[in-house]
């Protein structure tokens, strides 16, 4: 669940969510229940936002990125390995399955200028703010 600071201030604190967030922060676990995979970090700047997503072992072709208005949707999946007859798991902690993650920004995205790249299993998406949506400075005339 993405929860921006704006939102957090704007509404009552949901104790369960807070608890979950704290728990995650304290255990430092990189540990994905299906809902949290893949984990997302969101960086905001004056002209753009940058979303980084940890997608180890996922080929770039297997990721689908869509931008509509102020919303970014990332879809993809990581297949579980098919076991051969003689193979058996000792541990199985890595996540597998299909995912959809949606991020809503507080402004419209210039969809033509969105850039995405993958390096070492980390997906980085740059989302520039739409020109029409940028704040305008109003000149004050003296009469």
């Amino acid at each position: 669940m993405l929860l921006s600071e704006y939102e957090r201030i704007g509404r009552f604190l949901d104790p369960w969510r807070e608890f979950e967030r704290l728990n995650r922060a304290l255990t430092g676990a990189s540990l994905p229940s299906g809902r949290d995979f893949p984990p997302i970090n969101l960086w905001t700047g004056p002209e753009s936002s940058i979303v980084t997503v940890e997608i180890p072992g996922i080929e770039p072709e297997a990721v689908d990125i869509q931008v509509v208005g102020n919303t970014l949707t990332i879809k993809g999946g990581r297949a579980a390995r098919e076991l051969k007859e003689s193979e058996a798991y000792h541990r199985r902690e890595r996540w597998a399955g299909q995912f959809v993650r949606t991020v809503q920004l507080p402004y419209d995205i210039e969809s033509e200028k969105v850039e995405a790249r993958v390096s070492k299993g980390v997906l980085t998406i740059t989302l520039p703010r739409a020109e029409a949506d940028k704040p305008k400075k109003i000149a004050i005339k003296t009469v």
Binding site: G57, R81, A88
Partner: peptide
């Protein structure tokens, strides 16, 4: 630095053991 524990899969077959670890950001 913070140290994280990567999630792993460990598979055993007749002639080998295979360890797969998710370590995004590492090459």
């Amino acid at each position: 630095r913070r140290i994280y524990t990567p999630t792993v899969d460990i598979l055993e077959s007749e002639d080998r053991i295979e360890v797969l670890a998710d370590m995004p950001g590492v090459d």
